[in-house]
Design a protein around this nucleic acid. Sequence first.
DNA 1: CGCTGGCACTCAAACTAAAAGAGTGCTAAC
DNA 2: GTTAGCACTCTTTTAGTTTGAGTGCCAGCG
Lengths: 344, 344
Amino acid sequence: MGILSARQIKVLQAVIVVYIHSGEPVGSRTLSRSSAFQLSPATLRNVMADLEDEGFLCQPHTSAGRIPTDQGFRFYVNNLAGMAAVSPAARLHVREHLEVVGGRLEEVLHDGVLTLAQLTPYVGVVSMPDFRQMIIRHIRFVKLHERRILAVVVSVSGAVQNVLFDSDTNFSQDQLNHSSNYLNALLGDLTLSGIKRKVLQEMASDKRGYDELFKQVLALSKSFFAKDPEQQSDVMLDGKLNLLEHPEFADVERMKNIFRAFEEKGSILKILDGALGGEQLRVIIGSESCCEDMRHCSLVTAEYGRVDRTLGQIGVIGPTRMDYSRIIPLVNYIADAMSRRLQN
Amino acid sequence: MGILSARQIKVLQAVIVVYIHSGEPVGSRTLSRSSAFQLSPATLRNVMADLEDEGFLCQPHTSAGRIPTDQGFRFYVNNLAGMAAVSPAARLHVREHLEVVGGRLEEVLHDGVLTLAQLTPYVGVVSMPDFRQMIIRHIRFVKLHERRILAVVVSVSGAVQNVLFDSDTNFSQDQLNHSSNYLNALLGDLTLSGIKRKVLQEMASDKRGYDELFKQVLALSKSFFAKDPEQQSDVMLDGKLNLLEHPEFADVERMKNIFRAFEEKGSILKILDGALGGEQLRVIIGSESCCEDMRHCSLVTAEYGRVDRTLGQIGVIGPTRMDYSRIIPLVNYIADAMSRRLQN
DNA sequence: CGCTGGCACTCAAACTAAAAGAGTGCTAAC
DNA sequence: GTTAGCACTCTTTTAGTTTGAGTGCCAGCG
């Protein structure tokens, strides 16, 4: 037990390949006919029964064909799935729609999921970078009304976040400008919390002699950073309708579950960033996501970002019966394209 | 024909009320028993047959009860539906979740749809104001990188829009600040296009003598306003899952259609803003929306905004079999609460 | 010992038939 | 104008039957 014979592997692979394309339980007869097996249905039955004992296959009910279990798919993805090259059509599509110039971070991400939703029959998904972990290029304060201030924070990767807060004192826009300048001069390759720490340090070391400007910056920073936990970390989805085309989601109850998971994006985010800092590409199959509502879905995701720093995950959500050998390279390809675009 | 007798109206109303609560076709027997009618089923049958001839009722098939047509619902909403008072529970919920202080426009709108999605079994929907029609309070330019500039535009109602653009010349942040100040001094109760026009006018009248600063502003404005059509006008939806609970959407095909309409928000926006400038409250029943995918849905929407200016529509989308007498006052109530919150 | 053919068995899906139930339209009588 | 009665229609439900795909197991063969 545990280790599979060469023949078992070959049968397992055949079952999975057929199942991925047909969506129906596959029986011994089908297998014996279609594939290049020289074995009789009876023999295949024996092999399949063994594979079932090992947990790679299962039957929806007695006397139906076998379908792969999550464990079966896992073995397939890890060991058997040959990776198809990204089709020329897909490359062209990416070149035209994704590999364009610039744009805000949000737009780039949107282009990414949109492309995935168009090139696959699944749902495109991307986790938006945690703003708190992004390196800040600019902070600028805009006086709105009395003590109400809008901080515009721009990261190196082009993400823009607006933070609304109230300051204790009533600064003029000129004062805010000066403070902005001061703060921007200070920051170099730091995240928001890094900046916060640095400002506090400068204050502690009080080598600045507490000049007027510095006091302003301090007061402002205090109010501003109090608001910091304004966390926009989020996921973006596109192509939810694609799922409706798959027979496995004709069941209304199952559909509801998945759409529920989509609506409260927190659970998806948890799955996406769950094993953060792991491999560059991840495949999460069915119950591996530990999310009950997503038990019948798989995720294929890849990291995207700049060379030095991962920003988030982009990929697709589809039924466990997913065309992994086509999707995995595609997700990789698109993550790469996005990363390149973010690089400038 | 055309005009309905008192008895016909009474029957029509009874059919609709029963249907709204049961969701099943209602037959003459049910009606004769339940309601305060002193009429026999046979008589009711005659009346109902007449109502069907007039187009207010229809049968899913021979020998089923009658269900109201869109026209029937229309008559009900216009003439028969007694408006229920907003329940204390709903009032409390609104007070706690919607009638809070401040926040960006986007947050306010989000609170609005969320509240609707929680207080009704339908989908909350709000059309975001067309930024181009909003009165601008602030424009501020932030230098990002070389000639790449981020304009932060803030409206009086608290909407913030970031516009990314490239200027022809490489301004310093100080120059941008001065230009911002200049521009902000100029604008008073104007929309973006109003400002554009004004700047052009000032240029034409060249009474400024073409000083250095003004030239800057001009150059900047030219690049900035070139980007103007960056239209974010959009709709926000919440509570899509609610719809799945309704028996009328157990049919997968029908569900798909509606979710398709949700995904491409343009069509919804068209419906919402279609009869813009009309009544304060609108009810759109079934095919009246002229959107094939939404044929089985009704919308109840109300205008929201500041006293002097309508910003958009907020309301719900649900099955045509909607509890209008509860929903209409509720939507009104929530639109009011939102408008009040936006007022400050 | 591995493979195969044969056979009995199981189970879901498809089909058929019959019955039940709800409701209608129509007509004749009140 | 209203009603009771009746024949008719059509859906829904139930049950029973058949079909077909597939399995498990056993005995025999190389």
